[in-house]
Amino acid sequence: MLRRCGVVLAGLAALLSIFFIGVPDARAEYGDVVINNYSDASGMRPVVFPHLFHRIRFRCKVCHADIGFKFQAGGNEINMVKIIDGQFCGACHNGEIAWSVENCNLCHSAKPGTKTQVHESTIQKLAQPAAAAKKK
């Protein structure tokens, strides 16, 4: 009887742990780039660039070698004139390879005031251990 109770309890604990601990999940936030060079000042939401949706479709070199994006968040001085001219995002987001620039909100979707950053990067985590501790 005692043993059976133990088994039932262990089963319950296993079930509960699924709810509380959560199953690790594929996450896109790691590696997302926020670009806010000019957005806030222009009254637009900052841009969230989902790195890993792009990685499913293109190898790194397509953007970082062929199109010429520097490996630096906010370091490319992208603006809408350049994009409409076919540079940077505009090399694909032109209505031919990918959807075009009329869809402002799909990129300009971050919380206003979010700083330019590579989200959840190791540097971000190591440089702000105090903030990370507070969250817990």
């Binding site: 594929a26 939401r45 890993l52 300009h108 979707s109 971050a110």
Partner: peptide, 21 residues
């Protein structure tokens, strides 16, 4: 923590889970 919950894009953009899982 990044996306503005008020942004109209929230309903249109693909959830990471859907693509990456």
């Amino acid at each position: 923590g990044l996306h503005d919950p008020k942004s109209p894009a929230i309903k249109q953009l693909q959830e990471p889970r859907e693509a990456l899982s």
